[in-house]
Design a protein around this nucleic acid. Structure first.
Lengths: 191, 191, 191, 191
DNA sequence: TATGAATGAGCATTCATTCAT
DNA sequence: AATGAATGAATGCTCATTCAT
């Protein structure tokens, strides 16, 4: 189906080139459809972009939710969240890159706002999980949102840095390092 | 002097609009010079951008170096690094945003490479300080580079999240939260 | 029936937006049919437009013919023609606007020619009536065609001007003014 | 100078093809300049069009004003106005065509409004002259505006009709016919 | 040093039309 | 008789860059 071909091509190109350097011609060529077809399925470049980002965020959220279960301890949940995010950020690093970096300027304000809300929701979702586990800890509501945001920034930056390196280290080492950095703070005791 | 007017205008506009949305016309108008003058002083948009980013990174580095002194303990240095970065990221958040986000795509590859090197140097510089303080700790060289990168990502994301909020919390609370998150891991004991 | 729905939609939109600003998509949407259906019933946009204009001119002609009767004096006929045209131009001003303005450019030449002929026929028809009444007057054949054309231009422009005004004057005043202007010239002695 | 070449080309093409069928590419080609040059001198197609129409209306007005003198009788002035308009409409018929027909749809509303005001001013100017000469006559203020509008419509349509004909009649005959039609109504006595 | 008119490749978008079903 | 997904040429516009002065 044309629509899916377009979405796949757009993810690929937006990731590689960013929003502004990706032209609708590029996308059409990559998707092997005529340029007009893009506009049959999407109202414009902005909507196409929004679709991809929205899908991406929802996918991330559901992947994370899938590994969390009610019967897990708070500590297990925190460990799983960190682990799953590293895994997702490595696997979908191009999509992640779109979601975190391309969302600031030069895109229609209303689209930006809707996506911003989605991202805030996602952080609130993570923050909720952290808070739950730490009701008896030092972190309170507002703190935990900053922590959640910072945690994502940390994992993303580390993963990006890892990817850029010429494969000199293993994924396990990345997990270890991030865990060693992050868990001591998130978990009340231990490091 | 025209050149300085151009640089000031470019910083302002690149920060506000990003690389692609800032046009040479905009910069010329903001600097109150004719468009041709830009090309008299810089070979093109890319070089102008590179100049600004290079200046920015050097400024950050020297600001951080200025607060570090030989007679400080490792712990003091780590605390100062974190504190100073929060301060700088809040103050120069637009410039920071350029440095971290606008540098991935759509700029001439050679420029990108040079700037990438500068950034790597900066991370190596931070990593060096961390390593020094932890020669007796668990972190080793490769770990500390990831940590340095992750630390910057964390601080930047948290600050960005802080800035976006409608002023509901104080800067002090931001410092406290980030410290509470980061220091337990970086410093051998304590939280 | 689809065809009628299409014609109705097309009249409405061509009148409101003109030929070029009316898209086949618009027409299909307004008519509640699929886009392909337009091309089932009409060979293209041009033919659809021609159908509407032809229908419109024929309608005008028959409306005018309906008020003219053999037993009327020449003066009566002239008065009726003027009066009826004002009435029609006010009622169908959007259609009139298409017929007089949209027919000069940007439409396939052969369509343009056929419609042009229709318009010339209409003017000849009016001219014939005027001539008949003035066989004993000063106006001769070629004069009366110019007069007929001019008369239509005058009535249209006046009506358009009247319509654009914020309802400050009555239709009666419009009739009076146009009559006061036009009849003295058309009728041998005053009006 | 490029700007003049562009204006000349635009007048020619807008007249021949109308607003929508004239592309900026066409204009650039006709003017022998690069496409970008159009946008260096004009903000867009709309402004280019507005410039031409505004210039045209002002030119017409000043040409008409130039033949009117204080010491002329009202009758002389009316005769001169009619005569001058016929002359102008024949000479600048393409420009006239733009001014009267292309101003209804599909052009930015604000441009349309400004041009509409200019046209209304022009009609008010003519209406003023007519009124002055008829202070003792039957026409009053609102009447004279309609008359002015209608007069222009009449002259334009007649001239257009004249132009379309295969040169079978002389300009003198056109003047005579229009005068014979128009003067009886405008001038209190006589024909 | 500095200017600004001119350029032309590139871009997002529109839209009449086709065709397999 | 009717559909709607797909097309691709055309269009208005942007913008980094050049160059004669």
């Amino acid at each position: 189906m044309s629509k899916n071909k377009i979405i796949d091509a757009a993810i690929k190109l937006f990731s590689k080139l960013g929003y502004h350097r990706t032209s609708m011609d590029d996308i059409a060529a990559e998707a092997n459809v005529a340029k007009g077809t893009l506009y049959y399925h999407f109202s414009g470049k902005g909507e196409l972009f929004e679709t991809i980002v929205t899908n991406g965020i929802n996918m991330l959220k559901s992947e994370v939710q899938n590994v969390l279960r009610e019967d897990q301890s708070a500590e297990q949940q925190v460990r799983l969240i960190v682990q799953k995010h590293i895994e997702l950020f490595l696997r979908y690093n191009e999509l992640i890159h779109i979601i975190s970096n391309e969302l600031t300027n030069g895109i229609e304000p209303d689209i930006l706002e809707r996506i911003g809300k989605l991202k805030a929701d996602y952080i609130a979702f993570l923050s909720g999980i952290l808070s739950m586990g730490y009701e008896d800890g030092v972190l309170n509501k507002f703190n935990s949102e900053w922590i959640a945001a910072g945690l994502l920034g940390l994992i993303e930056t580390s993963c990006l840095y890892y990817i850029k390196q010429p494969g000199s280290h293993s994924v396990e080492q990345l997990h270890e390092t991030i865990n060693a950095f992050v868990l001591p703070a998130l978990l009340k005791k231990d490091g």
